[in-house]
Design a protein around this nucleic acid. Structure first.
Lengths: 351, 351
DNA sequence: CTGTTAGCGCTTTCAT
DNA sequence: ATGAAAGCGCTAACAG
């Protein structure tokens, strides 16, 4: 097994020379074209192995005028919800022969914009984007002239007519709050994030719907908005809520991270979950639940968000997408544990 | 704000034509070369904006014979330990002007090999790798002729003389087991993974050291090896351990995910943690701990693993690394919670 | 089945 | 301070 140890990386010409054929034949071999005689193919393959040749993707992309790279852009990949999405998307992408570039916007629109431009510069074949919020609209619009297909994940943006994979936030929130009402709660607070984010708007709407259905009057004091759907955001909002003597008996938080911050704030005030305040939220934290089944949640099939979104994107890149716009809404699943104050730990489902 | 809406993406020539200069001048502008007259620069910048021009990274990389892309390769990015590493590395890389490509090997050596070849094909400037294990050696060796600098993260591989960032697994394990011994345990089991992984070997060694120091004889029955350091691996190994009537009063698992599986297995047998069996492990699960401070762990500064490793890699790429090989060992931190059976929840540190 | 030619978009080198 | 020429490694289009 000889190896090129000396100079620069071997090119397709080096392989051609070593195999006694033209670069074109080598190209046909590495691209699995049928029109190569088996013997010739073997010679070429031998030369490739001998030289340790690896095709240069940059040159390939430049010539073909397209790459097989997908960009995945999310606000935070340490959030278990997003990391599952990434895993699902990466898996599907790989199987379809696409590579994947990951970007973490940290919820910052400008950083998002920089990443988007980066993806354009890399000539990514398509993008999977969990946008920062409606403020991402301008960023996404800038994408249009570059003809980069993209699929939105988790968050819709009014005015952006792209493919979209999201959960049913309205109904999920409605169920969650209805569950609390069924448990006897009437002063139910909602810890949310900026209404710039579609999921936050939808969940607030579901909250309203559940209240209305039960004939419970809406109290604006019970809705507080954190800076973001993060631990800190949930903590700050809950602290403000409790300091204002809004006296909720239950809190519905916009997502899992906010719930963690919320619970911390409740406990710091010397109160107990669920005895003093019940807590429910969107999105599960599976690892935590396995250690201690505590949080009652509306679990979304995060990994499936990723696989479906990747599939939609790949179809569109391949021109297999006929419709102008496709929207997939995935149902969430109510998992009742103890933080809501329900007895036992029944695991019902909302299929 | 005119935009190119029609044809293909504008090239540097289009910009040059629009600005009435040569492509070379445009190149100088986008690369921030000093030798451009301010007026000329402005014209060019105006043309760039008008056309919505974004430089083609493929062409750039091809010409320059190098890219500013780093590859990050880990076994699983839904594991909180690795997702923190990724966040840290991504952050540093971005700041230094590098893009980042993420690969998830799922603990599969062949998949790892495929990714590595992919990174070579992309002409990545360097690689950050948390390898599958010693079996990755052949994969990494194949990298050498391609001259791709790489930094190993978390796991060392005998015979691979690369830069390396790791935790002090031996001492961390020793402390963890010593803690259990201090609590009165003498039948302490160790749930580990394949000894192909350096961290698993080191932690087993630390386990031995602690036992020896306390004069507790080693019982091979108390060491069980799961398929991987995953929830399932920990579950299976613990199930086997308990079925064998090894009767441990405490278990030290090789990492956090294995601990989750371990605890599940203990509970399924009708036993309680920590009353019947105490459990401690390497690596924290911060989200779970915030909800319910339960698991006693040896916490590693995962994000710092990522930032330091990225820094080492970038230095080496830039030729700023003088030494042949640099090894950084980061200390871990003992966090005592309740799963070990210690009273209270004292948070000591092993700085 | 195999080879030749041309060019993808950019930057390096060398002029001016 | 600016430009012209050449070429990075590959493949599309067209021979043969």
């Amino acid at each position: 097994m000889m190896r090129d140890v000396g100079g620069a990386a071997p090119t397709i010409r080096d392989v051609a020379r070593a195999a006694g054929v033209s670069p074109m034949t080598v190209s046909r071999v590495i691209n699995e074209s049928a029109h190569v005689r088996p013997e010739t193919r073997k010679q070429v393959e031998a030369a490739i192995a001998a030289l340790g040749y690896v095709p240069n993707n940059l040159a390939r992309g430049l010539t073909r005028q397209k790459t097989s790279t997908l960009g995945l852009i999310v606000p935070d990949f340490t959030d278990p919800f997003f990391s599952l999405i990434l895993r699902g998307a990466e898996d599907v992408a790989r199987r379809a022969g696409y590579g994947v570039i990951l970007c973490n916007t940290a919820g910052d629109v400008e950083r998002e914009d920089a990443y988007l431009e980066d993806m354009v510069a890399h000539r990514a074949a398509g993008l999977l984007i969990a946008p920062v919020g409606d403020r991402s609209r301008a960023n996404l619009r800038r994408l249009v002239p570059h003809r980069v297909p993209f699929v939105l994940i988790d968050r819709a943006i009014p005015g952006i007519e792209s493919d979209l994979v999201q959960g049913d936030s309205i109904d999920g929130a409605r169920q969650l709050v209805a569950h609390l009402i069924g448990l006897g709660h009437r002063r139910i607070a909602h810890v949310t994030e900026s209404q710039d984010v579609s999921t936050a708007r939808d969940r607030l709407r579901g909250y309203h719907e559940a209240l209305d259905a039960a004939g419970i009057p809406f109290d604006p004091e019970l809705v507080v908005e954190g800076k973001a759907a993060t631990i800190e955001g949930g903590y700050d909002a809950t602290t403000a809520l409790l300091a204002a003597n809004a006296a909720p008996t239950a809190i519905f938080t916009v997502n899992n991270l906010a719930a963690v911050g919320c619970i911390r704030a409740i406990r710091e005030r010397g109160l107990t979950v669920p005895d003093d305040v019940a807590v429910v939220c969107f999105d599960d934290i599976e690892l935590a639940a396995m250690l201690h089944p505590f949080l009652t949640v509306m679990a979304q099939p995060a990994e499936t968000f990723g696989t479906i979104a990747a599939q939609l994107l790949i179809d569109r890149i391949a021109g297999r997408a006929t419709e102008r716009r496709r929207r997939v809404v995935l149902p969430a699943d109510l998992i009742v544990r103890v933080s809501c104050g329900a007895e036992g730990g029944i695991q019902s489902n909302g299929g």
